[in-house]
Amino acid sequence: MTSCHIAEEHIQKVAIFGGTHGNELTGVFLVKHWLENGAEIQRTGLEVKPFITNPRAVKKCTRYIDCDLNRIFDLENLGKKMSEDLPYEVRRAQEINHLFGPKDSEDSYDIIFDLHNTTSNMGCTLILEDSRNNFLIQMFHYIKTSLAPLPCYVYLIEHPSLKYATTRSIAKYPVGIEVGPQPQGVLRADILDQMRKMIKHALDFIHHFNEGKEFPPCAIEVYKIIEKVDYPRDENGEIAAIIHPNLQDQDWKPLHPGDPMFLTLDGKTIPLGGDCTVYPVFVNEAAYYEKKEAFAKTTKLTLNAKSIRCCLH
């Protein structure tokens, strides 16, 4: 018999989150649709729960009410004593943790798909938090293969000092899905179709896995975050240069030392320094102006996964 890495157990509980950011409308629209008619997301033997994560922000069509829901799922915020004085999103995070967690427990949901849009030209993107997770690498390989020839990129946010504390991190297997470009507060049919297909293929993978299909060893190309880059700023902290036209919409493309990065209003080009080629992502993302992030630098690498098969009882 072929030796293989056996994944822990079959997958039982899956959640699909929309509206973690209330103005990213593809996930909101799909989740609302699936709450009314969820036939397309159901798979035999699998509990799939669509869920609106930040209903107040969705109602106002804004990213958040008090603070970013997708950055506060750490033990400090989840452990705060519940009171009306807490920011709305912290209270909501505790409610979500109660419903789908608790985080880092045996009772937490197996998989959470968190649906997002970006204003950046990132196409279909899967966000991975753990480079050693054979199950998710296999799932992402399946999704990428199923979507081809449509490109699907994998963004690895594993980093020693950049801690995200994402909404989906309460699950055993957290999956971020990011599709763009799409303006905030807008629905685009092409973007919706791409996100819908990503979810379909992900659920198909889980179904095949649960039925005992063995997935042979595989490898995927990923883009691992190195650092986030702020806009150049003046002495008052105001933005002093904008994304250069040569960099705009060039997510995932190589940016070499000396290539144009920013452009000042008086026409001066600010190039990339250093001696390493990087791959920019979230270029000129609207939501990241407040976070002082013009783009993120990534490096390209390959992740390998062992063969996996479900432990059938």
Rank of each mutant, 00 (worst) to 15 (best):
D130S: 09
V48K: 01
L255N: 02
A240F: 08
Y288D: 14
N284F: 02
S169D: 10
M195V: 07
D259V: 03
P254V: 07
S105T: 06
V229Q: 11
E158C: 04
P151Q: 09
G45D: 12
T119R: 02
G212V: 00
L86E: 14
N284G: 14
L255H: 04
F17C: 11
E9W: 09
H159L: 11
R43G: 04
N134L: 06
L203P: 01
I41Y: 03
K32E: 08
G185C: 09
N284D: 02
P245A: 04
Q184L: 06
I308N: 00
E290R: 13
D107Q: 06
L75R: 12
T2H: 08
R196M: 01
K49A: 07
V154W: 03
S83N: 08
K49W: 12
G212K: 05
K60H: 15
D107T: 12
I243T: 04
Y64S: 15
A287I: 07
M198D: 00
R92T: 12
T118R: 11
H208C: 14
L126C: 05
K200Y: 08
K59V: 13
A241C: 06
F73Q: 12
S105M: 12
N284A: 13
R196H: 03
H244L: 00
T264I: 03
G273E: 08
K32T: 11
P271L: 09
R91M: 11
C311S: 08
E178P: 03
R132D: 10
D251N: 10
P55D: 13
A7R: 11
K291T: 08
E285D: 11
E211S: 12
K59H: 14
H5A: 09
H98P: 07
K172A: 07
T26Q: 02
E8Y: 09
I177T: 01
L312T: 14
G123H: 07
K49T: 08
V179S: 04
R92Q: 11
V229H: 04
L303K: 02
N77M: 11
V222P: 02
V175N: 00
H10N: 09
E129D: 11
P257L: 04
T269S: 12
T118E: 02
A15D: 00
T125G: 06
Y223A: 03
H201L: 11
G38E: 13
G45S: 12
V90M: 12
N284I: 01
F100M: 07
V179F: 02
F205I: 01
P183C: 11
T119A: 10
A305H: 02
D249C: 04
F135C: 01
R309W: 07
V28R: 08
L147H: 04
L265I: 14
M198N: 02
T125P: 00
M195Q: 13
D204H: 02
L312K: 12
C310W: 10
T62L: 09
E24L: 02
K306F: 09
I308H: 03
H208D: 11
I112L: 13
I239G: 02
L187T: 15
S105F: 07
D266R: 09
G123T: 04
N23K: 05
S161R: 14
Q182V: 12
P50C: 10
S307G: 07
C67H: 11
M139W: 00
K300G: 03
C61R: 09
P50Y: 02
K197D: 12
N97R: 09
Y289F: 15
P232M: 04
N77T: 12
F51W: 10
K224D: 05
A241F: 00
M195E: 04
E158N: 10
K59G: 13
L301V: 14
A148G: 06
R196A: 05
T277M: 08
L303W: 01
E40I: 01
E293A: 10
A287Q: 15
F135G: 00
A15H: 00
K163H: 07
Y88L: 15
Y109S: 04
P257V: 08
I127Q: 08
I191T: 05
G176S: 11
R43I: 04
F113M: 14
E47D: 10
Q194A: 08
K144W: 04
F205A: 02
I143H: 00
D110E: 08
H256E: 12
I6N: 12
E129G: 14
G79V: 06
I226M: 12
G212A: 05
N304Q: 07
E221C: 04
T298I: 03
D193N: 13
R132L: 09
P245L: 02
H313L: 11
Y64Q: 11
I206K: 00
T145A: 08
T277L: 09
V28S: 10
L69W: 07
D114K: 04
M122R: 03
A287D: 14
P216I: 05
I191C: 06
Y223Q: 03
E214A: 11
P160A: 10
D107K: 09
P271G: 10
E293N: 09
E89F: 04
G258V: 06
F100A: 06
D190I: 05
G18Y: 03
I226H: 15
E214V: 08
F209W: 15
Y155R: 15
A202P: 00
G274E: 08
F135H: 01
H141C: 04
T118D: 03
H244E: 00
V48R: 01
Q248T: 06
F135Q: 01
G123L: 03
L99S: 14
N210T: 06
N284Q: 01
Y64G: 06
